[in-house]
Design a protein around this nucleic acid. Structure first.
Lengths: 187, 187
DNA sequence: GTCTATATATAGATAGAC
DNA sequence: GTCTATCTATATATAGAC
């Protein structure tokens, strides 16, 4: 196992659980098994580590969404899959989406990091808009409204649902919050 | 002006902007104009300060909701007012609801503080359930579903909308996210 | 690449003078 | 109630040996 990858994995888990200011090189040191000075060899600054983390995470999520878009599934099925991605990210109510976790303290994120996050969220919104436009055509989401309003509401809902779930360390709170949205899907 | 109140005000603003770990007694010292040792006279520990903050904040919000409930307004109007409270709390896209800001790092909140937050959120959900039950009777919210599912979705949505707004330091992002919900209100 | 040792900054908190 | 002075812990980060 690559040390750099192990560090990124440990940092991602810690950041999504405790926020950017909620973990230190000391914590990573214990998890990965090397001294803090050695971590600085791989990632000279914590800000740089976090930018690397954002790049890896957003690339993975965007690839998953592109795969979904190419799957040929109905809009309703893609919406269920999209919600499922955010549900799985919860990790039994302990974690948030990396970008949401970072946006809890936006002033502590480097300018580079923030720019990456904004690019990611803009792409995510465009993906959702395309989804709700498809829904107007295939009819697999009940009572479809303006795609851009639907997309913004959908993203805010799943992010709020994550916060609710982690507040109780309970995935069920997530399910309750998205129940209404999912009940609109047909086929 | 009471020093204790000035400290609470400064701490609330700082916490809602930067999170629990994003402000220090040093910061409060600069804002209020007394030394950090003097702050410890009013609030011996930071954890105690935060519990006091939660108590003041949740009491204020719950009182506002009770006033709304007694106002005799339609369910649609009360929902618009409810969303308006979360919108006003944004403070031009710089702040979150205190409890949401704290739930970003739940492990750093004292057991007392967490208990207060959970009590508050449970009451808020009950208030919303009552609202959506009223909507089924007075018909001022379109297409009403199960009140408890509506309540959970509504709370998650406004909280997610706050995060979206602060990500861009822009209240418009909040408005976009809640547009669909508000468009369901009639009269 | 990883280590020990260390530098530097800042955090929350306490003692005791005024 | 507020101050100066200080304690202790922890943070990010660097220098230089191995």
């Amino acid at each position: 196992m690559n040390t750099r990858t192990a560090l990124l994995d440990a940092a991602e888990q810690a950041l999504r659980s405790h926020g950017q200011n909620g973990f230190s090189y000391q914590d990573l040191s214990k998890t990965v098994g090397i001294r803090t000075a050695s971590i600085h060899y791989h990632f000279p600054s914590k800000a740089g580590l976090i930018v690397a983390l954002i790049q890896r995470y957003t690339a993975d999520v965007l690839e998953a969404l592109e795969d979904l878009g190419r799957s040929g599934s109905t809009a309703g099925q893609q919406l269920r899959d999209f919600v499922g991605i955010y549900r799985a990210a919860l990790n039994d109510g302990r974690c948030l989406c990396l970008c949401v976790a970072l946006l809890m303290a936006p002033d502590d994120v480097s300018a580079d990091g923030l720019a990456e996050i904004h690019r990611f969220r803009a792409k995510e919104l465009r993906w959702l808009e395309r989804l709700f436009a498809q829904a107007q055509a295939d009819g697999t989401i009940q009572n479809p409204q303006d795609p851009s309003a639907e997309a913004a509401a959908c993203l805010a809902l799943v992010e709020g649902a994550q916060i609710n779930a982690r507040a109780n360390h309970d995935t069920a709170a997530f399910d309750t919050a998205v129940e209404l949205l999912l009940s609109r899907t047909r086929g």
